[in-house]
Computed example of a mutant assay.
Amino acid sequence: MTLHSMKLILAATTALGLSSGAATAQAEAADYILATASTGGTYYPVGVALATLVKVKLQPGDGIGMSAISSAGSGENVRLLREDEAQFAIMQGLYGYYAATGTGPLEEAGAQENMRSVSMLWQNVEHFVIDSDLAETGTISDFVGQTGQAMALGRRNSGTIGSNAAILDGFDVDIYEDYELVEGGYGPSAEALQNGQVAGISTPAGVPVGAISQLFAAAGDSVTLLNFDADQIAQADGGRELWTEYTIEAGTYPGQEEAVTTIAQPNFLATQADLPDENVYLITKTIYENLPFLQAIHPATQAMAIEKAIAGLPLPLHPGAIRYYEEVGVEIPDRLRPAE
């Protein structure tokens, strides 16, 4: 996390104050672990903000605390929830789909019956960046064409490498066979591209991504952020109805003079099905009653709104979250209600 983010969290925490609502008898005191991803992306600072919010608002009166930890991302987070090494996790929509269906990298583990959704958080925006000497068209086709090259596409078992594998499979690329993979988090991957150790990287995260900002500030026009055209968007999605068009506006990153059309999938907050309903209710309520706090920490959360809270969720909602949403008038479709 950057020093700027830390200062924002401290300032926002002070503004929130230490008062909590009246203690609820049904709440059970607990200290929860929230799994995020590598520190150079968006999951970690947003996770720290979520955990700080819960600790400040719910620990004094209700005894509910939360701490954010870094991890390898969505793929590992599924395991952390399953093995009770974490009770909450931020996760890509794709991995929620895998968890719900027991498909993809979770085929051997099977459907994750003990996982539930809490809330949609923000869109995970795909940032495919390549050495400018290789950017002939300025589109994802430049990346696809670099078979045999060293590429940094995420840590082993991470959501990053999983989503990159799914996207590039739509272009008949097997990343494990066709590229020389260099494993690492977002910061090390960006440094590897800057230093010429890899030809390209992909860092899906909420805009702006800290590692990408640092890369463009240091490398300038020697690296290129790639576009997707309409046909390429359809190829990348592969019929999942998960990835959609997303515009990274000009000026988002240092030296970015033109808007870039890329793709994005949803991120969401997941939890364990057997957590107390009251605790999940209070956490969900606290998040939506304090959105300005989260939005002051990271711009990715500025898209959060109660109207979008359940959009695109891949797993059934936790009953505690359902209770809050129904209180504020959100209509819950049958597909998001857990089986009795």
Rank of each mutant, 00 (worst) to 15 (best):
D31R: 10
G159Y: 00
M66P: 05
I140H: 00
S20K: 06
I297K: 01
S132T: 02
T2D: 11
E180V: 11
Y32M: 10
A35H: 04
M66F: 00
Q146I: 03
V209K: 11
T14L: 12
Q146Y: 01
G75F: 00
T271G: 15
T36N: 11
E289L: 13
M304S: 10
D169G: 08
V46W: 06
Q123G: 08
P254Q: 07
I212H: 04
G170V: 07
G185N: 08
I167E: 02
L10I: 10
G162E: 11
E76P: 02
D172F: 00
V207W: 12
I33E: 09
H4D: 15
I69A: 06
G154T: 07
M1T: 00
Q87R: 01
Q123N: 11
Y253L: 13
G170P: 03
G255P: 11
A15I: 07
P60F: 08
K285M: 14
Y44W: 06
L269Q: 13
L282D: 14
D62Y: 00
Y176F: 07
A270G: 14
G61F: 03
G63E: 08
G40D: 09
A25T: 10
A219W: 11
I33K: 07
I90Q: 02
S5Y: 03
A234N: 10
A109Q: 05
V260T: 10
A49R: 08
N157L: 14
A111K: 04
L242R: 04
A22C: 08
D334E: 15
Q235D: 13
Y179S: 07
I322T: 14
A100I: 04
Q146S: 09
L10D: 15
V209M: 14
E180Y: 04
N279Q: 08
R156E: 11
R116V: 04
G329C: 11
A100M: 01
Q194H: 09
R155E: 13
Y281E: 09
D31I: 01
I248V: 09
F216S: 14
Y44A: 15
M120R: 10
A12K: 13
V198W: 00
Q112M: 14
G110M: 05
G65T: 01
W243M: 08
N164R: 11
Q194Y: 07
E331Q: 15
A12M: 01
D174E: 08
L275K: 05
A264I: 04
A15C: 15
Y246F: 06
A339T: 12
R240C: 00
A236S: 05
G239C: 12
N195W: 02
E136S: 09
A230K: 03
G145Y: 02
I332C: 15
L193S: 08
V198G: 01
D178I: 10
I9T: 05
T244A: 09
E136A: 08
I283G: 15
A234G: 09
G184I: 13
G312K: 06
A264W: 00
A230N: 06
Y95G: 06
G154S: 13
M304L: 12
G162N: 06
L106N: 05
A218C: 03
